[in-house]
């Protein structure tokens, strides 16, 4: 029984952590290409969850099709936002860009409230409710799907950055914007691409989270803030770091929530990401895998 409890906490942690990892990756991609923090990341997530839900509930679109349409919509949203809010700020101080994303977050949130209201909308059951048993431990199928989905996505993203021309252009721009320009790389296109990817992976995170939780409401946007310690922990500019940070924080939250919260009466789950963050930054100021610029001796 005790072992089963531990295993369930670990699996919960892994699943939630993998979604953190996904959303954090979107965050890192934008940060790398334009050194801007996107404070609307949580809203991107919510947009994804609501659009998918809307298609499934209102228009009876099959889940897979709704998922694909949501992806396309998010990609478009990313591009439109980059065009209308970020590009005019190209060359202005990073702080203005960050403030713009904050404004964007409020606008998106308000729009969603207008269209969908503030009540929790239940997510239809898309996965069979009976859990599968891994040894003695019951695991819900939705969790397994979610884990696989994130793993596939992260692998695909890694391959995209490593092996495609666009991926190379994005990494070159992250390394040095001016030098990338001198190669003939269109930095504007790279920015648009990074917003597009970030919006898409966040939307997927939102859909998965909605499906797992069984409902969608405004609290989903808190993921945007929760992912901040994940990103900083991972090192701001490292995708591998974001993944590692996501898993660590997902596991920590669930373990602390399961074992410590009953003892102290709750709250540990919420603060433990920040405690871990502070402790790790004390030892490694640039995060787990963050780049210290290459210094030759």
């Amino acid at each position: 029984m005790d072992f089963t409890f531990l295993m369930q906490l670990l699996i919960n942690g892994l699943v939630v952590g993998s979604i953190y990892a996904l959303v954090a990756t979107g965050f890192v991609i934008i940060f790398k290409s334009s050194s801007a923090l996107n404070l609307a990341q949580g809203e991107f997530l919510m947009v994804g969850a609501y659009i998918c839900l809307y298609l499934v509930l209102q228009h009876k679109v099959p889940f897979i099709a709704a998922f694909v349409i949501t992806m396309l919509f998010s990609a478009l949203l990313g591009i439109v936002i980059e065009r209308t809010t970020l590009r005019p700020l190209l060359g202005s101080p990073v702080i203005s860009v960050i403030m713009a994303t904050l404004g964007l977050a409020s606008v998106l949130r308000a729009l969603l409230q207008i269209f969908f209201g503030v009540d929790t909308i239940p997510f239809p059951e898309i996965f069979p409710p009976e859990p599968v048993h891994i040894g003695p431990v019951p695991v819900s199928i939705g969790y397994l799907y979610s884990l696989c989905c994130v793993a596939v996505l992260l692998t695909a993203l890694t391959a995209f950055f490593k092996y495609t021309k666009s991926g190379l252009a994005m990494r070159a721009t992250a390394s040095s914007r001016q030098t990338a320009l001198s190669m003939g790389i269109s930095v504007k296109k790279v920015f648009a691409m990074s917003w597009c990817i970030a919006a898409m992976v966040s939307a997927i995170g939102g859909i998965l989270l909605g499906a797992i939780r069984g409902g969608v409401d405004m609290s989903l946007a808190n993921m945007g803030l929760k992912v901040l310690p994940v990103v900083i922990l991972g090192g701001m500019d490292s995708i591998a770091g974001a993944v590692l940070g996501g898993l660590i924080i997902g596991l920590l939250e669930n373990l602390c929530g399961g074992y410590l919260d009953p003892l102290v009466g709750g709250g540990v789950k919420e603060v433990v990401p920040y405690i871990a963050l502070v402790l790790i930054l004390m030892v490694r100021p640039s995060g787990l895998l963050g780049s210290r610029r290459i210094e030759r001796m």
């Binding site: 990494r171 992250a174 190669m183 790389i185 780049s291 290459i294």
Partner: peptide, 15 residues
């Protein structure tokens, strides 16, 4: 591009 390999740098040149 410091973080890119030598070959990736050259590939970026041929972008």
């Amino acid at each position: 591009f410091q973080e890119l390999t030598v070959e990736e740098n050259l590939a970026a040149g041929g972008y």
